[in-house]
């Protein structure tokens, strides 16, 4: 019996599969949202040390920045909290064009 399609793109199934291959990985999770954030709290993204990823924490607006941070998290083995707001030139170069704000927790899989 073939697994359903979504198992091949489910971040937690992918995380287990990548980890079983011996790859070092991090999980990014949306923990808080304000305003019109694109993905709800609990949405997850899995990232490996080479920057390969599966899943999403926004509509594609901030994934690039989360992946870059996740590669550092894997190297340091320390979790990190990231915050993204409206796209502007202040704290982050990227942001959410929808006007929402999100907090993303990035942790290594130990």
């Amino acid at each position: 019996m073939n697994p359903p399609e979504n198992h091949r793109t489910d971040p937690l199934d992918i995380a287990a599969a990548w980890s079983a291959e011996g790859r070092q990985i991090a999980l990014a999770t949306v923990v808080e949202t304000w305003g019109s954030a694109p993905r709800q709290a609990g949405s997850q993204l899995v990232i490996d040390a080479e920057g390969n990823f599966e899943g999403s924490v926004s509509g594609g607006c901030v994934e690039g920045a989360v992946i870059a941070e996740a590669v550092d998290v894997i190297a340091s083995a320390k979790p990190r909290m990231l915050e993204f707001g409206v796209a502007d030139e202040t704290a982050w170069r990227v942001g959410l064009s929808c006007g929402g704000r999100i907090k993303v927790y990035v942790e290594p899989l130990a």
Binding site: L12, D13, A15, A16, S19, L27, L109, A110
Partner: peptide, 14 residues
Amino acid sequence: MERALLLSLNEERR
């Protein structure tokens, strides 16, 4: 997250 926790979670989900 500990790997064992991820595996237990996936088992519950399955």
